[in-house]
């Protein structure tokens, strides 16, 4: 399985350079406090893991991967792990970038930064959980469409909620440890269930 993770990371190696450029552009655009900057990790991670699925599909990698030892079992596991690694990396960079730019522009607000970073992390993990089973079942092209629907649906939902429902204080301020734990556990549970579903789908798939 380590091998499969390395494979995906090697595949996106070249893409990372392009995306880093994009990140830098976004960073500049958001120095004046524009919060767009904070959704970049989610955006990058999504693009990168879609890329890995895409390349797999074009090269019919899945058929070949199944012939490797522990093929079916490891493909799904590796995809989830790789994607989580990508998210963590992207978030870490954004966090550091956020601190640096915040310091440089004297507009650093740690708790705001933390809030945004956590919501990105959870958002990204949620996107993985919802989209991976769909991608494994229906392939990348359709999976991409589902993904867009999910993301926009998500954004729509959130704006709806913030408009019409008052959120209790402890949820709004995720910096609060208690709220953090609850949300983390829920997200991890959703992720785990998604993994189990994906595993089952892939186990049954024929190529």
């Amino acid at each position: 399985m380590k091998g499969l993770i390395k494979k995906d990371l090697l595949v996106i190696k070249s893409n990372i350079k392009h995306l880093l450029l994009l990140v830098l552009i976004f960073c500049f655009l958001s120095i004046d406090g524009n919060n767009m900057f904070y959704y970049i990790p989610t955006f990058i991670s999504t693009m990168l893991f879609i890329t890995t699925f895409s390349y797999d599909e074009i090269n019919k990698w899945d058929s070949y991967a199944i012939t490797l030892p522990k093929g079916r079992k490891n493909v799904v596991k590796a995809k989830y792990i790789t994607s989580i690694l990508i998210i963590c990396w992207a978030i870490l960079l954004t966090y550091i970038g956020g601190i640096i730019f915040g310091e440089l522009s004297n507009s650093l607000n740690i708790s705001l930064l933390n809030n945004n970073i956590y919501s990105c992390l959870f958002g990204a993990l949620l996107i993985i959980s919802l989209s991976f089973p769909l991608i494994f079942k229906y392939g990348v092209e359709r999976g991409r469409i589902f993904l867009i629907v999910i993301i926009f649906g998500f954004i729509f939902l959130i704006s709806l909620i913030s408009k019409y429902i008052t959120i209790p204080e402890y949820l709004k301020n995720i910096d609060n440890q208690y709220g953090m734990y609850i949300i983390s556990i829920i997200i991890l549970l959703i992720l785990f269930i998604s993994y189990l579903i994906s595993k089952k789908i892939y186990q049954k798939k024929e190529f």
């Binding site: 494979k7 090697l10 595949v11 070249s14 390349y55 797999d56 074009i58 090269n59 019919k60 990698w61 058929s63 070949y64 012939t67």
Partner: peptide, 10 residues
């Protein structure tokens, strides 16, 4: 296999 191999950018 027939045309099933590693992603070709590797």
């Amino acid at each position: 296999l027939d045309n099933m191999f590693f992603p070709d950018i590797l």
